[in-house]
Simulated scan of single mutants.
Amino acid sequence: MGLVLVARREDRLLALAKDLTADYGVRCDVITADLTDPAAPQAIMARVTELGLDVDILINNAGLSGSGAFADTPFVELANEIQVMMTAVTELAHLAVPGMKERGFGRIVNVSSLAALMPPAASLLYTAIKSYVLNLSQALDMELKPHGVHVTALCPGFTHSEFHDVMGTRDASNKLPAFLWQEADAVVREGWNAVDKGAPVCVPGVVNKVTAAAVKPVPLWVGYRLGKSLNPFKN
Protein backbone atom coordinates (compact mmCIF):
# COMPACT_ATOMS: atom_id res chain seq x y z
CA MET A 1 0.00 0.00 0.00
CA GLY A 2 1.22 3.50 -0.80
CA LEU A 3 0.14 7.09 -0.77
CA VAL A 4 0.55 9.49 -3.71
CA LEU A 5 0.46 13.21 -2.98
CA VAL A 6 -0.30 15.58 -5.85
CA ALA A 7 -0.01 19.37 -5.82
CA ARG A 8 1.94 22.22 -7.40
CA ARG A 9 4.55 22.92 -4.71
CA GLU A 10 7.15 20.16 -4.62
CA ASP A 11 8.96 21.37 -1.51
CA ARG A 12 5.74 21.27 0.55
CA LEU A 13 4.87 17.84 -0.83
CA LEU A 14 8.29 16.39 -0.06
CA ALA A 15 8.18 17.68 3.51
CA LEU A 16 4.71 16.22 4.03
CA ALA A 17 5.71 12.90 2.47
CA LYS A 18 8.72 12.68 4.80
CA ASP A 19 6.55 13.33 7.85
CA LEU A 20 3.91 10.78 6.83
CA THR A 21 6.51 8.10 6.20
CA ALA A 22 8.18 8.78 9.54
CA ASP A 23 4.92 8.85 11.50
CA TYR A 24 3.06 5.97 9.84
CA GLY A 25 5.68 3.94 7.97
CA VAL A 26 3.74 4.30 4.72
CA ARG A 27 5.29 4.55 1.28
CA CYS A 28 4.64 8.10 0.09
CA ASP A 29 5.32 9.25 -3.46
CA VAL A 30 5.09 12.80 -4.75
CA ILE A 31 3.80 14.04 -8.10
CA THR A 32 4.01 17.74 -8.87
CA ALA A 33 1.23 18.85 -11.19
CA ASP A 34 -0.84 21.92 -11.94
CA LEU A 35 -4.45 20.88 -12.51
CA THR A 36 -5.14 23.99 -14.57
CA ASP A 37 -3.15 22.14 -17.25
CA PRO A 38 -5.57 19.95 -19.26
CA ALA A 39 -2.79 17.36 -19.68
CA ALA A 40 -2.30 16.96 -15.91
CA PRO A 41 -4.82 14.15 -15.16
CA GLN A 42 -3.40 11.84 -17.82
CA ALA A 43 0.16 12.64 -16.73
CA ILE A 44 -0.68 11.95 -13.07
CA MET A 45 -2.21 8.57 -13.81
CA ALA A 46 0.65 7.64 -16.14
CA ARG A 47 3.12 8.39 -13.36
CA VAL A 48 1.09 6.32 -10.87
CA THR A 49 1.31 3.39 -13.30
CA GLU A 50 5.07 3.89 -13.61
CA LEU A 51 5.32 3.69 -9.83
CA GLY A 52 3.63 0.28 -9.96
CA LEU A 53 0.61 1.41 -7.97
CA ASP A 54 -3.14 0.92 -8.34
CA VAL A 55 -5.56 3.68 -7.41
CA ASP A 56 -7.98 2.17 -4.87
CA ILE A 57 -8.74 5.49 -3.18
CA LEU A 58 -9.06 8.82 -4.98
CA ILE A 59 -9.47 12.12 -3.13
CA ASN A 60 -10.32 15.09 -5.36
CA ASN A 61 -9.58 18.02 -3.09
CA ALA A 62 -8.01 20.73 -5.28
CA GLY A 63 -9.92 23.98 -5.38
CA LEU A 64 -9.87 27.71 -5.98
CA SER A 65 -12.36 30.53 -6.23
CA GLY A 66 -12.45 33.87 -7.94
CA SER A 67 -12.95 37.09 -6.02
CA GLY A 68 -14.62 39.36 -8.55
CA ALA A 69 -17.81 39.66 -10.56
CA PHE A 70 -18.31 37.24 -13.47
CA ALA A 71 -18.34 39.92 -16.18
CA ASP A 72 -15.23 41.61 -14.78
CA THR A 73 -13.13 38.44 -14.51
CA PRO A 74 -10.83 37.43 -17.40
CA PHE A 75 -12.12 34.23 -18.94
CA VAL A 76 -8.80 32.49 -18.41
CA GLU A 77 -9.42 32.67 -14.65
CA LEU A 78 -12.91 31.24 -15.04
CA ALA A 79 -11.54 28.51 -17.29
CA ASN A 80 -8.98 27.60 -14.64
CA GLU A 81 -11.74 27.14 -12.07
CA ILE A 82 -13.65 24.88 -14.46
CA GLN A 83 -10.54 22.89 -15.33
CA VAL A 84 -9.42 22.33 -11.73
CA MET A 85 -12.76 21.67 -10.04
CA MET A 86 -14.88 20.15 -12.81
CA THR A 87 -12.87 18.76 -15.72
CA ALA A 88 -9.93 17.39 -13.73
CA VAL A 89 -12.23 15.88 -11.09
CA THR A 90 -14.27 14.14 -13.78
CA GLU A 91 -11.26 12.95 -15.76
CA LEU A 92 -9.35 11.62 -12.76
CA ALA A 93 -12.40 9.64 -11.68
CA HIS A 94 -12.88 8.36 -15.24
CA LEU A 95 -9.28 7.18 -15.35
CA ALA A 96 -9.40 5.53 -11.92
CA VAL A 97 -12.80 3.82 -12.07
CA PRO A 98 -12.06 0.99 -14.56
CA GLY A 99 -9.32 -0.43 -12.32
CA MET A 100 -11.52 -0.08 -9.24
CA LYS A 101 -14.34 -1.98 -10.95
CA GLU A 102 -11.96 -4.70 -12.09
CA ARG A 103 -10.62 -5.16 -8.55
CA GLY A 104 -14.08 -4.91 -7.00
CA PHE A 105 -13.07 -2.15 -4.60
CA GLY A 106 -12.76 1.62 -4.73
CA ARG A 107 -13.36 4.76 -2.71
CA ILE A 108 -13.72 8.24 -4.24
CA VAL A 109 -14.19 11.40 -2.20
CA ASN A 110 -15.00 14.51 -4.23
CA VAL A 111 -14.84 17.69 -2.18
CA SER A 112 -17.94 19.73 -2.92
CA SER A 113 -19.21 22.39 -0.53
CA LEU A 114 -22.09 23.35 1.71
CA ALA A 115 -22.62 26.05 -0.93
CA ALA A 116 -23.86 23.32 -3.32
CA LEU A 117 -26.85 22.76 -1.02
CA MET A 118 -27.66 26.43 -0.55
CA PRO A 119 -29.78 28.81 -2.66
CA PRO A 120 -27.86 30.15 -5.66
CA ALA A 121 -25.69 33.17 -4.93
CA ALA A 122 -23.20 35.27 -6.84
CA SER A 123 -19.91 33.58 -6.03
CA LEU A 124 -18.69 33.45 -9.60
CA LEU A 125 -18.65 29.83 -10.72
CA TYR A 126 -17.95 28.37 -7.31
CA THR A 127 -21.50 27.43 -6.30
CA ALA A 128 -22.35 26.12 -9.78
CA ILE A 129 -19.18 24.02 -9.90
CA LYS A 130 -19.71 22.58 -6.45
CA SER A 131 -23.29 21.70 -7.39
CA TYR A 132 -21.90 19.79 -10.37
CA VAL A 133 -19.49 17.91 -8.11
CA LEU A 134 -22.35 17.04 -5.74
CA ASN A 135 -24.54 15.67 -8.53
CA LEU A 136 -21.69 13.92 -10.32
CA SER A 137 -20.72 12.11 -7.11
CA GLN A 138 -24.24 10.90 -6.45
CA ALA A 139 -24.66 9.66 -10.02
CA LEU A 140 -21.31 7.84 -9.92
CA ASP A 141 -22.16 6.26 -6.59
CA MET A 142 -25.41 4.89 -8.02
CA GLU A 143 -23.58 3.44 -11.01
CA LEU A 144 -20.56 2.03 -9.21
CA LYS A 145 -21.80 0.79 -5.84
CA PRO A 146 -22.80 -2.63 -7.29
CA HIS A 147 -19.10 -3.00 -8.25
CA GLY A 148 -17.80 -2.31 -4.73
CA VAL A 149 -16.94 1.31 -5.46
CA HIS A 150 -18.27 4.01 -3.13
CA VAL A 151 -18.36 7.67 -4.14
CA THR A 152 -19.07 10.48 -1.69
CA ALA A 153 -19.51 14.22 -2.15
CA LEU A 154 -18.01 15.87 0.91
CA CYS A 155 -19.79 19.19 1.53
CA PRO A 156 -17.93 21.14 4.23
CA GLY A 157 -18.75 24.63 5.36
CA PHE A 158 -16.15 27.04 6.70
CA THR A 159 -12.98 25.05 7.41
CA HIS A 160 -9.66 26.25 8.79
CA SER A 161 -7.17 25.87 5.92
CA GLU A 162 -5.00 27.93 3.56
CA PHE A 163 -7.91 28.39 1.13
CA HIS A 164 -8.87 31.84 2.38
CA ASP A 165 -5.25 33.00 2.46
CA VAL A 166 -4.69 31.96 -1.16
CA MET A 167 -7.97 33.55 -2.27
CA GLY A 168 -7.27 36.78 -0.35
CA THR A 169 -10.41 36.51 1.81
CA ARG A 170 -8.75 35.92 5.19
CA ASP A 171 -9.76 39.28 6.70
CA ALA A 172 -13.41 38.78 5.79
CA SER A 173 -13.46 35.17 6.99
CA ASN A 174 -11.92 36.15 10.33
CA LYS A 175 -15.01 38.23 11.06
CA LEU A 176 -17.27 35.18 11.00
CA PRO A 177 -18.41 33.66 14.33
CA ALA A 178 -16.15 30.91 15.65
CA PHE A 179 -19.01 28.38 15.90
CA LEU A 180 -19.29 28.31 12.09
CA TRP A 181 -15.79 26.92 11.68
CA GLN A 182 -14.43 23.37 11.70
CA GLU A 183 -10.91 22.02 11.85
CA ALA A 184 -9.70 20.24 8.72
CA ASP A 185 -8.93 16.96 10.48
CA ALA A 186 -12.52 16.72 11.78
CA VAL A 187 -13.87 17.25 8.26
CA VAL A 188 -11.50 14.60 6.88
CA ARG A 189 -12.49 12.01 9.48
CA GLU A 190 -16.20 12.50 8.89
CA GLY A 191 -15.73 12.43 5.12
CA TRP A 192 -13.73 9.22 5.20
CA ASN A 193 -16.21 7.51 7.50
CA ALA A 194 -18.99 8.50 5.10
CA VAL A 195 -17.37 7.09 1.96
CA ASP A 196 -16.33 3.90 3.73
CA LYS A 197 -19.92 3.38 4.91
CA GLY A 198 -21.26 4.09 1.43
CA ALA A 199 -22.94 7.46 2.08
CA PRO A 200 -23.15 9.40 -1.21
CA VAL A 201 -23.26 12.80 0.51
CA CYS A 202 -21.53 13.97 3.69
CA VAL A 203 -22.22 17.31 5.35
CA PRO A 204 -19.75 17.40 8.25
CA GLY A 205 -20.46 19.18 11.50
CA VAL A 206 -23.67 19.87 13.42
CA VAL A 207 -23.96 23.51 12.35
CA ASN A 208 -23.58 22.62 8.68
CA LYS A 209 -26.11 19.77 8.96
CA VAL A 210 -28.65 22.12 10.54
CA THR A 211 -28.00 24.76 7.87
CA ALA A 212 -28.42 22.27 5.03
CA ALA A 213 -31.64 20.92 6.54
CA ALA A 214 -33.04 24.42 7.09
CA VAL A 215 -32.70 25.48 3.45
CA LYS A 216 -33.89 22.18 1.95
CA PRO A 217 -37.62 23.02 1.99
CA VAL A 218 -37.08 26.48 0.46
CA PRO A 219 -38.94 26.82 -2.89
CA LEU A 220 -36.76 27.57 -5.91
CA TRP A 221 -38.18 31.07 -6.40
CA VAL A 222 -37.55 31.96 -2.74
CA GLY A 223 -34.00 30.61 -2.97
CA TYR A 224 -33.39 32.64 -6.10
CA ARG A 225 -34.56 35.85 -4.44
CA LEU A 226 -32.47 35.07 -1.38
CA GLY A 227 -29.44 34.50 -3.58
CA LYS A 228 -30.02 37.84 -5.32
CA SER A 229 -30.25 39.62 -1.98
CA LEU A 230 -26.88 38.15 -0.97
CA ASN A 231 -25.21 39.13 -4.27
CA PRO A 232 -22.04 41.08 -3.37
CA PHE A 233 -21.58 42.22 -7.00
CA LYS A 234 -25.03 43.72 -7.68
CA ASN A 235 -25.19 47.30 -8.90
Rank of each mutant, 00 (worst) to 15 (best):
L3Y: 08
V6G: 00
R12S: 03
L13N: 09
L16F: 00
K18Y: 05
K18L: 10
T21S: 11
T21V: 02
A22Y: 09
Y24E: 15
G25K: 11
R27K: 15
C28E: 07
V30S: 02
A33Y: 13
L35M: 12
L35D: 03
P41S: 15
Q42G: 15
A43K: 14
I44Q: 01
I44R: 06
A46V: 08
V48W: 01
L51I: 08
L51C: 09
G52Y: 11
V55R: 02
D56P: 06
I57T: 08
I57M: 07
L58T: 10
A62C: 04
G63N: 02
G63D: 03
L64Y: 00
S65L: 05
S65M: 14
S67F: 05
T73S: 08
P74G: 07
F75T: 15
A79N: 07
N80R: 12
N80Y: 08
E81P: 07
I82L: 13
Q83D: 13
V89N: 10
L92S: 07
V97M: 01
P98Q: 10
R103F: 05
R107M: 05
S112R: 03
S113A: 12
A116Y: 01
P119T: 10
L124C: 04
L125I: 07
L125N: 09
Y126L: 08
I129P: 01
K130F: 04
S131E: 02
N135R: 15
S137R: 09
Q138E: 15
Q138W: 12
M142Y: 14
M142P: 00
M142W: 14
K145S: 15
P146E: 12
H147T: 11
G148Q: 13
T152L: 07
L154P: 06
C155M: 04
P156I: 01
P156M: 03
T159Q: 08
T159K: 00
H164E: 13
D165R: 14
A172L: 10
A172Y: 05
K175Q: 15
P177D: 02
Q182G: 06
Q182N: 13
A186P: 01
V187L: 03
V187I: 15
E190V: 09
G191H: 02
G191N: 04
A194S: 14
D196R: 14
G198Q: 13
G198T: 12
A199P: 00
V201G: 04
P204I: 04
G205I: 11
G205M: 12
V206M: 09
V207C: 13
V207M: 14
V207T: 14
N208E: 10
K209I: 12
V210Q: 10
A213D: 08
V215G: 06
P217I: 13
P217A: 12
L220S: 09
G223Y: 05
Y224C: 02
R225S: 06
R225D: 05
L226S: 02
S229P: 00
